[in-house]
Nucleic acid binder design. Structure first.
Length: 464
RNA sequence: GGCCCUAUCGUCUAAUGGUUAGGACGGGAGCUUCUCAAGCUCUAAAUCGGGGUUCGAUUCCCCGUAGGGUCACCA
């Protein structure tokens, strides 16, 4: 009773998970997904999420990698409640290592290779079993492990020892990690027992695979998360995609935000087999999230990309918030990621929004027509119809209504092609009604006038 | 090789002892406002093999096979 009340007041979370990357490489899809599942599991149980930098390998650990991991997690929106670095916990490891030595549960061993002395664990040689949240019961015979090494010296613990002690001391209740750790689990449980620590609940996630079905790793097919950021992916799309890789809600819903994920996630429904990372699907999910991005966010990002492009500089574009906002619908339907905006710019598909089109008069000619007389006639009609349209009715629907009956009568191609070409100067572009609406009446009419001038000019030249 | 894990369309997956084995991405075809994009509709595409158990197995069991992981004084 009393202890129950005390527990109530100490507000100790009943679930504590951790993400424990070693800073020996950038954060990539494989370890990111482990972080996602670990984080979501903690959140949905009102638990605590710990970030622990496992930098006991002083030779391979690098500050730049730690920075990359922290930066990626911040961008992806997975805040941790506590952070630890194993390199700062030397005293703690020393204390417990000495205790194990004193208890005879570990011993200093003379070596023939490597360094002269290391600390080995005295293996009780027994069977250990545990119930994995994802895979069910797993049993190992630890005899084959021998007296394995747990530290190079009392001040230099290695992975297995540091992990077990830290999880114990930090109160980690659920260890969510990759399947590649399944075979590490028995020896870690042996260390727990020697330390008198309770065994946490394990959940071994299936691996994220490269295209050849081998484990995704830094040197094998994995891109850093910051790479996806720089390529213009949305963090919420990465979160959504990675959550779906190895898990699904059992419904047909595929688009989730973090809150939805926390609600729907069920660790027992996590897949057992590994899953290949598929960028095509990621792109699709990114587009779905892009459609939901606020105008403000979209304009900020798109404006930055367009404004800083070589094309904008070379052609002297005036890239304003308003201009970007007007072309937002066109952009959204043409891109999967913000990075695709750069491709549109490079392909010169945005030129006509920011500068006057450049083209030859002959391009105005609809296919199969002998000369520009038809184009000229239709453009004149279109110009008159548009010019008669009041300013306040200058929107896509009204513009279409003003032109459509005429196009139906005269032929859509012969009318619409020169109309659109006059506005964009491109073989491929959005339809002339959208373009007119975006450009505004003055610019639209001016461009048609320019096209008409080209027609006249071409005819004159022909006559001479 | 030892130990461990896994096995449904190309990919991510749903279903569960009884379904025409469902969805999504990608592919193909068609429709839509000239071109493009987007959208919509349709379509091809899967239960690794062999034994059981069962009236009936994709589902349960066994054996193969395949793939993966792990066997460090890395994590």
């Amino acid at each position: 009773m009393i202890s129950g009340i005390r527990a109530l007041f100490s507000r100790k979370p009943k679930v504590v998970t951790r993400f424990a990357p070693s800073p020996t490489g950038y954060l990539h899809a494989g370890n990111y997904r482990t972080a996602v599942f670990s984080y979501v599991y903690a959140r949905q149980n009102s638990g605590k999420f710990i970030l622990r930098i496992e930098d006991t390998d002083t030779i391979r650990s690098k500050k730049e990698y730690e920075d990359n991991i922290l930066e990626s997690l911040a961008w992806l929106g997975l805040p941790y409640d506590e952070i630890y670095r194993q390199s700062q916990r030397g005293e703690t490891y020393k204390t417990y290592l000495e205790k194990l030595l004193a208890d005879g549960k570990a011993f200093v061993s003379k070596e023939e290779t490597g360094r002269a002395e290391v600390i080995r664990f005295r293996n009780p040689n027994k069977k250990v079993k545990f119930r994995d949240l994802i895979r069910g019961d797993i049993e190992f015979d630890t005899t084959e492990l021998g007296d394995f090494v747990i530290a190079k010296s009392v001040t230099e613990p290695i992975f297995h020892f540091a992990v077990v002690l830290d999880d114990y001391l930090m109160g980690v209740t659920h260890v969510v990690r990759g399947e590649d750790h399944i075979s590490n689990t028995p020896r870690q449980m042996l260390i727990q027992e020697a330390l008198g620590a309770p065994a946490p609940i394990y959940a071994h996630l299936p691996l994220v695979l490269a295209h050849d079905r081998s484990k995704l790793s830094k040197r094998h097919g994995a891109q850093s998360m910051t790479h996806y950021r720089d390529a213009g992916y949305l963090p919420e799309a990465l979160l959504n995609y990675m959550a779906l890789l190895g898990w699904n809600p059992g419904t047909e819903q595929e688009i989730f935000d973090l809150g939805g994920l926390v609600k729907a996630f069920d660790i027992s429904k996590v897949q057992k087999g590994g899953a290949i990372f598929n960028e095509e699907k990621l792109r699709w999910i990114n587009k779905e999230h892009l459609k939901r991005v606020s105008k403000t966010d979209f304009v900020r990002e798109a404006k930055a990309r367009i404004g800083s492009s070589d094309r904008a500089r070379d052609l002297g574009w005036n890239v304003t918030d308003d201009a970007v906002l007007r072309i937002m619908p066109i952009l959204v339907e043409r891109i999967d990621t913000y990075g695709d905006i750069d491709k549109l710019i490079f392909a010169q598909d945005l030129d006509y929004f920011f500068s006057e089109p450049v083209y030859d008069a002959v391009s105005l000619k609809w296919k199969g027509e002998p000369d520009l007389s038809s184009a000229k006639k239709h453009l004149e009609h279109v110009r008159a119809a548009l010019s008669a349209l009041p300013d306040k009715k200058w929107n896509e629907e009204a513009i279409k209504a003003a032109i459509w009956p005429y196009a139906e009568k005269e032929g859509r191609g012969p009318v619409l092609w020169p109309f659109r070409f006059a506005l964009s100067g491109k073989e491929k572009s959005p339809n002339p009604f959208s373009l007119s609406a975006i450009f505004g009446k003055e610019t639209a009419l001016k461009r048609i006038d320019e096209a008409l001038k080209k027609c006249a000019h071409a005819n004159t030249n022909q006559n001479v």
